[in-house]
Design a protein around this nucleic acid. Structure first.
Lengths: 143, 143
DNA sequence: TGCACACCCTGAAGTTACTATAGGGTCAAC
DNA sequence: GTTGACCCTATAGTAACTTCAGGGTGTGCA
């Protein structure tokens, strides 16, 4: 099948499919005489696998390591479990960050209950008063 | 003060300060005879404000709209409240997404309790079996 | 005065995971 | 032959930084 057909099986765009091929996540397919990509069910299965991983917010790096293992059926799956454990830990961490952020935002929001003049706005005053924090270190690809 | 001094007051890097100037968040400062940037306390206050907004995961677009209002002390602050309400709603939504994701990840993780051969791994089988989902629409800049 | 070191400058490229644009080719149906 | 749907490659853009390349400035010390 052609690239548009493949993309539709995985509910993504042809641009994304080509991108995955460039990134090495999808192997290059056969070509027709007209240079169109020609895919079989192996590609459809692989693309679905990749899209499922993306739906789980796994990074390309994580997907690569899982794919490498999936291609060795007799190997032990310990590394898959490890990828998942780390990913789950990152999700937990990001949830905590967002919950803290939510608390801070609500506290600020409470400082301005009605529209008033900017110079009297408790939110803006709060933004001006806060002590700036050290740069946030990136701990997770989840935002 | 010079850019390194300014960056230290806001606990960020000189590169970030220059970036904010290029993005128009920070106004261009005076220059010394040697072409070094020369900042006063107004810039320090503005940079702290911006960093505080960033610490709250506000996007540059959101920060721009809030700064525009902060520069009009007699205007009404309704739009600030609106920015915050939307931002809080986005945080809520992202928390919900991540909690659903967490549930899905834990369910998959449960399918493989001990290391075994890849071909018997319940996680990999799950990733292969899942129906692919439509492309995720971007609803929030929070990841 | 010259050197060393810390810091400054601009411009461009890189990160991640796509997404859009530009310009041109292929193929099937009418 | 024409038209419309789809195909191709290459490149640039998105957001918010961060890094790299190559060169300049200023201060303290020998």
């Amino acid at each position: 099948m052609k690239i548009g057909d493949l993309a539709r099986t995985a509910q993504c765009t042809v641009e994304t499919v080509r991108y995955y091929e460039r990134e090495g996540l999808l192997p290059p397919p056969a070509r027709t005489a007209g240079n169109f990509r020609d895919y079989g069910h192996e590609h459809a299965d692989r693309l679905r696998f990749i899209r499922n991983c993306r739906a789980l917010d796994m990074s390309h790096g994580e997907i690569r390591s899982v794919l490498a293992l999936a291609d060795q059926p007799a190997a032990g799956c310990g590394a898959v479990n490890e990828v998942f454990d780390q990913h789950i830990a990152h999700v937990d961490e990001r949830i905590r960050e967002l919950e803290q952020l939510r608390g801070a935002l609500l506290a600020l929001r409470e400082r301005c209950r009605h529209e008033q003049a900017v110079e009297a706005c408790g939110i803006l005053q709060g933004l001006a008063e806060m002590e700036s924090e050290p740069r946030h270190e990136r701990h997770t690809h989840l935002g």
